[in-house]
Write a protein that binds this DNA or RNA. Structure first.
Lengths: 115, 115
DNA sequence: TAATTATACATAATAATGTTATGTATAATA
DNA sequence: TATTATACATAACATTATTATGTATAATTA
């Protein structure tokens, strides 16, 4: 499988990014979305996902909204009001970090766009 | 200071990359090089550096060459013969991982090159 | 000259964060 | 009917970083 070591520290920002775009998401949906976006290469395990979600709630960034589909709970996570602001900051930070990695490992230029 | 969380898992590949380019490097030199390349933003601590170097030696990727500068030891690290091959693989892997992050966090396109 | 900073190695205690394994349970599909 | 997919969650463990500590020489500054 994909080398996921580098994903250390990126799960929380990734969750924030996805929820910021989708409005609200539930845990299982997040794992599927990430699988899809990564062409099945990245599989977020439950042992990483749920503690991360709970921490984001504890930090006040996310709030939850439970919905019952038949007899099964679906726990949606969405950005809190203050979370919307911190989301922007956190995403800027992670983008800066990724740009740094791109620089350190000489991945630039990634895209040549011919006009 | 810089958010270094994302650097988790990147120290060993970074060491490999730098040694691969420079031929040989010693610990302190690596910390200084990374500082320089990152505009002082990334500071590799000794607690991360030396265990990482020792592990790379244990894994057979690096070998050492001690040099005495006056009364002070300078321990150079260089790629072993087999390490030269694994270096290429490891660097390909990390580059693939970083590209994945770039994709997941929508950092593309980073560079527009007009022809 | 004395004190501080830079160079240079290293390890231990602790914290953070992931993987693997396990647990419970419903709904859908083979 | 058995398996897979959906859906939550936690515990044991592994990995890897930070912070603190330790030792010591060389160079610079007060």
């Amino acid at each position: 499988m994909f080398s996921q070591e580098i994903l250390k520290g990126t799960i929380k920002p990734l969750i924030i990014k996805l929820i910021n775009e989708e409005g609200k998401m539930y845990g299982y949906q997040i794992t599927q979305k990430v699988k899809e976006l990564s062409s099945q290469k990245i599989v977020i395990t439950e042992g990483a996902l749920y503690p991360a979600l709970h921490k984001l709630v504890d930090e006040g960034i996310l709030i939850t909204e439970s919905e019952w589909i038949g007899n099964r709970e679906r726990k949606y996570y969405l950005l809190s009001e203050s979370g919307k602001q911190t989301a922007v900051k956190k995403l800027d930070e992670i983008k800066e970090s990724i740009s740094m990695l791109v620089h350190l490992f000489d991945l630039k230029p990634l895209v040549y766009d011919v006009k």
